[in-house]
Amino acid sequence: MERRFLTPRYMTDIVKQLSKKWLKRLIISALLILAVTSCAMNGSPRLIKLGVMPKEKVCRLAVLPFVNETDFELGGLIFYRIFMSELVSSGKYVVSQEGDIRKIYGQLKISHKEAPTFEQVRILADRLNAQLLITGKVVDMAETVIEQESRPSLSVDLQIIQADPARILWTTHHRSEGERYRKVMHYGMENTITGLAKRVSSEIMELWFSEGFNRCMD
C-alpha cells in the first residue's frame, strides 16, 4: 500500500486534480462562510445577564446620560436622544424626563463625562421614582463618505441597573454599520448616524423584550 504524506508536492498534485469548476465552488463557499460569520459578529446585540429582572412589572425607567468615548462630537448625546425616543415610542414605559435627570446630576455634581456611582444611582432612582435605570456609553461612532455614500458605524455598551440594592442586571453590547441594512443598490442602507442609532436602539430593545425585560403596558 502506497503511503502518502501531506507534503507540498502531494498538495500541489491534489489541487491539479481538482477541476477549475470545483475550485471556483470552493472559493465561493469560503467567501460565503466568511460573509456569514462576519455578519454575525457585526449583527445582533450581545446580552450578558448578571442578575435577575424584578418579577413585578417595570413601569418607570430612567435613562441616564450616555458617556461619549469617541471623537465624534456630542456622540453620547446624539445616541442618548435617539435611544430615549425609541424607548418612548415602544409605548411600554414611562420614561423620566431628561431635565429632571440633569437637575439631579447637577445637584450631585456628576459630570456628563462619567458614569454615576452606585450610591448616586440610588439617589437618582429615589428622586425619579424609577424602578430601573439604563446607563451606557458610546464606544465608537463614525460617519465616512465613500463614493457619494455616507457610511455610518456605531458601537455601544448599555447596562440595565437595579436601584435598590444597586447592581447591574443586564449588560448589552451592540455594534453595527449602515451598510449592513443594504438590500438592493442603495436601498435599505442607513446613510446617517441618526438612522443607524435608531436601528441599533430598536435592535437592543427587541432583544431585551424577547429575553424577558418586563413591559409595564402590555
Partner: peptide
C-alpha cells in the same frame, strides 16, 4: 460631500409631565 440630516421629536403631555410620543429619523440625499 452628501447632504444629510437627523431629527428627534418628543411630545410631552403637560397634565402629568409624561412623554407620550417620540420619533427620530435620519435622511440623506441618497
Amino acid at each position: 460631500s452628501i447632504p444629510r440630516l437627523g431629527l428627534t421629536l418628543s411630545l410631552v403631555r403637560t397634565e402629568d409631565g409624561v412623554t407620550i410620543w417620540s420619533n427620530s429619523k435620519g435622511v440623506s440625499q441618497a
